[in-house]
């Protein structure tokens, strides 16, 4: 049967005041609860009945202290409630982690960026999540907590499938930790969209390059929207690593990246077009990063 819903399904709304309380609720309602931060992904999907209604929704928004952007000797850390807008406008992120700021700026509308969170974007785990390729290239680690304790997972091991993550039923992503990038590294995020703004990525490409005297000291390339999860493309990186930059080699790396992508056909684009665009965007991202 087809009913087009306008209303949210019924659920029990819980607004804990502390992280401990949230973890305790999550443990108590294990498997029957859903955690939300900004809610910008979950609420529309619940309204459309794209996901089953949970018995309980645990809203983290009211917990103080989870929206800190911390920058110190160990690097950058983003609390689970740090909004996309906060990342977009943070001076330190703009200066030192520009690739992430570029991705934040490319996302949705100002209204959504002010509400939606980077952690939510990661936990929602859609293949086109814009914050994922930059975090992959920056080597981010995710601090996951539960009542039983905490663990740290590399972002590459976090995504397990479309909408699937390594997060256990009773865990919350508390913090995204990003190490200091090497001083001369340059990052670029390029996003292919049909319109100039407010669109989902057809292809997202993040490239972080460490150039020195025309040689590629190190490079990391990550792709969004072209595989079941956001992915690093190490074979493409290997083409350039330690080599002198030249157009032919960059082309080869871009082709390799396209070869490593595993896109699908859907109503937004065909797999062929997506694969072709990986090549174009990887090439452009590397060239722009070198030029910076």
């Amino acid at each position: 049967m087809t009913t087009f819903y306008r209303r949210l399904p019924k659920f029990n709304y819980l607004a804990p005041d502390t992280l401990d309380e949230a973890l305790s609720l999550l443990s108590r309602y294990k498997g029957k609860a859903m955690v939300i931060a900004g809610g910008t992904d979950i609420i529309p999907r619940l309204k459309r009945r794209e996901i089953g209604a949970p018995e309980h929704v645990i809203d983290l928004k009211g917990i103080p202290g989870l929206d800190n952007i911390k920058y110190d000797v160990s690097g950058l850390s983003l609390g689970t409630l740090v909004t996309i807008g906060a990342v977009e406008t943070s001076a330190i992120i703009g200066e030192k982690f520009s690739v992430l700021a570029q991705a934040a700026q490319s996302m949705a509308s100002p209204q959504v960026r002010n509400r939606g969170t980077i952690a939510g974007n990661i936990c929602n785990a859609v293949p086109s999540a814009d914050s994922a390729p930059p975090l992959l290239t920056l080597g981010a680690k995710l601090k996951l907590v539960s009542q039983k304790g905490e663990r740290t997972v590399g972002i590459e091991d976090f995504f397990t499938g479309p909408g699937q993550t390594a997060l256990a039923d009773d865990e919350i992503l508390q913090e995204i930790q990003i190490p200091h990038p090497p001083p001369n590294s340059q990052g670029i995020y390029l996003k292919l969209t049909p319109r100039r703004a407010m669109d989902l990525a057809i292809v997202g490409v993040a490239a972080v390059v460490i150039p020195q005297d025309g040689v590629c000291q190190d490079i990391r390339i990550a792709l969004g929207a072209v595989a079941p999860t956001p992915i690093r493309v190490r074979k493409a990186e290997a083409v350039l690593k330690g080599q002198k930059f030249d157009d032919a080699l960059i082309e080869k790396a871009a082709k390799t990246a396209a070869g490593q992508s595993r896109p699908i056909d859907d109503h937004r684009a065909s797999a062929d077009y997506r694969r072709d665009m990986v090549e174009v965007l990887v090439k452009r991202a590397i060239k722009q990063a070198i030029r910076r």
Partner: peptide
């Protein structure tokens, strides 16, 4: 397949 304004693309102000 695209009954939303996310996927039914009308030009935005920037376009």
């Amino acid at each position: 397949l695209n009954p939303t304004f996310l996927d039914y693309k009308m030009p935005h102000a920037l376009d």
